[in-house]
Design a protein around this nucleic acid. Structure first.
Length: 572
DNA sequence: ATAGGGTTAG
């Protein structure tokens, strides 16, 4: 294990340079000569060590540090511990590390503080290196540092290092600790390895609020928000009381799921439980309502928020954008600037999207924008090009985008769609070739439909639904009608390199079409008594106005409603 | 004394 860590972390270490260390020591020395007036004999009683972490400035700390050195007390651990901790809290890692190196006999707290300091500063490699030294030193007896190092693997999405740590943790028997296991679950989830996240979670001997929270987040993160919501119910059944952080995760699950019914339930729950609606929870709720299709409720939440930040504004602007309300998005953007809130990259991407989705191209903006042109921005621009059929600009933007993110299948699909729309079949073929050559995997497509508060999920060519036969029959009839009305299937949207017959098969059973066919299958209800005369009339009108088939089973018989008439011919 | 979970786009 130690050797593996060395191999892994060795080439990329970042640590205070020798030069920096020298400079640091000379600063200390000059401080020692000029600033310390206290007689040596009075040291260390004069220092109020307990107040050290609140030390206002670094120079004060350095002075203390210096006195330790001058008085030969650097190995006095309880003092060194406190100074080290203060250094890390003040984000002075260079001084911290210099002190750390000077202390030859370290205890586990000392190691933890140093590792935690590098972690908080986001210095992945230094953190790993010190951890490696910790493992080698044989001082590692408790598990306090493990969640920290696992967490930085999560933050840098370093699955390889994460697995290595999991292996280490497993061998040392630290897996059963809630803190360690929760960090592992979260790491696997952020790296999109839901199987392993679930495995670690299932094997936990005890689960607290945080473990549940990360697992719920993991489900959403990995595309299974429904399971996340089920976990939330299980958590409460187990007597764990939710807090607002777990609620943010639940709200996110609803947003991903797109179920307005579930959205309302969760919103009510948040109200009933009296959770304080802070910026993050409030913003999550805006996002949830917008993604569940209700701009009105999203705006209501937005208006009701006590405090808003860039993210809240961007969320609402984006919502207007993807609901096609470009004008509203622009107005809100103006209001945001008026409120003195500075936009970020994401705000601009959302705004660009909003404009391109509502034909407000003149107002959307890119060369003049004084912001970093990242992948999100290029992707938004290409999206705009698709809508306006600007192949030349799309070409240019695609070059930049594919350079930044060559593995993102969505970009290729988008580009191919633009070429297809412009009738440039050669370019379509080229994109397809590029995808094959670079082994780009398309993300599997799914469509969800909510009927009577229940969510049904479809994949391409899906036969798993209980009403599958009926759905395919419905789809066939529907297609026939559409083709009579002028619909012509366009196989250019199938990017697989296969013959046209197969392309048609795939195209015809895309998950969107299956979900819609399911949504159009007859409405079936069952009544325990005879259907009432007024309801009978009511349903006849529904079948006429809504052009739907309705099947009613009452105590006596079946009624099939179609085009305003019932199969019972009003005899029942 | 030191440890794990939260918001926006693509």
């Amino acid at each position: 294990m130690t050797d593996e860590l060395i191999w892994y972390t060795m080439p990329k270490f970042t640590s205070p340079s020798n030069h920096g260390r020298h400079r640091f020591l000379s600063v200390l020395e000059s401080a020692a000569h000029s600033q310390i007036q206290a007689p040596v004999s009075e040291f260390p009683k004069k220092f109020n060590l307990s107040s050290l972490p609140e030390c206002k400035n670094i120079s004060q700390l350095r002075k203390l540090h210096c006195e330790l050195i001058v008085n030969g007390l650097i190995s006095e651990l309880s003092t060194a511990n406190k100074i080290l901790h203060s250094y890390t809290l003040h984000n002075d890692l260079e001084s911290a590390y210099a002190l750390f190196c000077d202390v030859t006999v370290k205890n586990s707290y000392f190691w933890s503080v140093m590792i935690g300091g590098f972690a908080r500063a986001g210095d992945f490699f230094s953190c790993c290196r010190v951890f490696r030294d910790y493992v080698r030193s044989g001082d590692l007896t408790d598990y306090y540092t493990l969640p920290v190092v696992i967490k930085i693997c999560r933050n840098s999405m370093d699955l390889g290092m994460g697995r290595l740590l999991h292996c280490f943790v497993y061998k040392c028997g630290f897996c059963c600790y809630t803190f360690v296991a929760a960090a592992l679950v979260d790491m696997y989830a952020k790296c999109k390895v839901i199987g392993d996240a679930g495995k670690v979670f299932d094997e936990m001997p005890e689960r607290d609020l945080v473990s549940w929270t990360v697992m719920i987040g993991a489900c959403t993160e990995c595309g299974n928000p429904e399971e996340g919501l089920e976990l939330f119910d299980r958590m409460r059944e187990g007597g764990v009381v939710p807090d607002k952080i777990v609620m943010v995760n639940v709200v996110n699950a609803c947003a991903k799921l797109g179920s307005i019914h579930k959205a309302r339930v969760v919103d009510d729950y948040v109200k009933v439980m009296g959770f304080l609606l802070d910026v993050i929870l409030g913003t999550a709720l805006i996002d949830m309502y917008a993604k569940c299709g209700s701009l009105e409720l999203a705006r209501e939440k937005f208006d009701g928020m006590r405090e808003r930040n860039v993210v809240s504004w961007s969320t609402m602007i984006a919502a207007y954008g993807y609901h096609g309300e470009g004008r509203e998005a622009l107005d809100l953007f103006g209001m945001m600037l008026g409120n003195g809130v500075l936009p970020n990259n994401i705000t601009f991407v959302s705004l660009l999207h909003a404009c391109s989705h509502s034909g407000l191209v003149d107002e959307g903006l890119i060369e003049d924008m004084n912001i970093e042109k990242d992948a999100g921005l290029w992707a938004a621009l290409i999206g705009a090009c698709r809508i306006h059929g600007d192949v030349e600009l799309a070409d240019k933007a695609a070059m930049s985008l594919l350079e930044l993110q060559p593995q993102n299948a969505g970009h290729y699909v988008l580009l191919s769609n633009i070429y297809a729309k412009a009738g440039r079949w050669k370019e379509v073929a080229k994109v397809r070739e590029l995808m094959t050559r670079q082994r780009i995997k398309k993300i599997p497509g799914w469509t969800w439909i909510e009927v009577d508060n229940k969510i049904h999920k479809f994949g391409v060519g899906d036969h798993t639904h209980v009403q599958s036969r009926e759905i395919y029959e419905q789809l066939k009839q529907l297609r026939e009608k559409l083709e009579l009305a002028g619909y012509v299937p366009d196989t250019n949207f199938v990017l697989h390199d296969i013959d046209d017959e197969l392309k048609l098969d795939i195209l015809h059973t895309h998950s969107e079409k299956l979900a819609i066919a399911f949504g159009l299958t007859p409405i079936r209800i069952t009544k325990n008594l005879r259907v009432c005369g007024d309801c009978h009339t009511f349903i006849k009108f529904v079948s006429l106005i809504m052009k739907r088939l309705l099947v009613v089973r009452d105590a006596n018989r079946f009624h099939h409603f179609k085009d305003g008439a019932c199969s019972c011919s009003d005899y029942w």
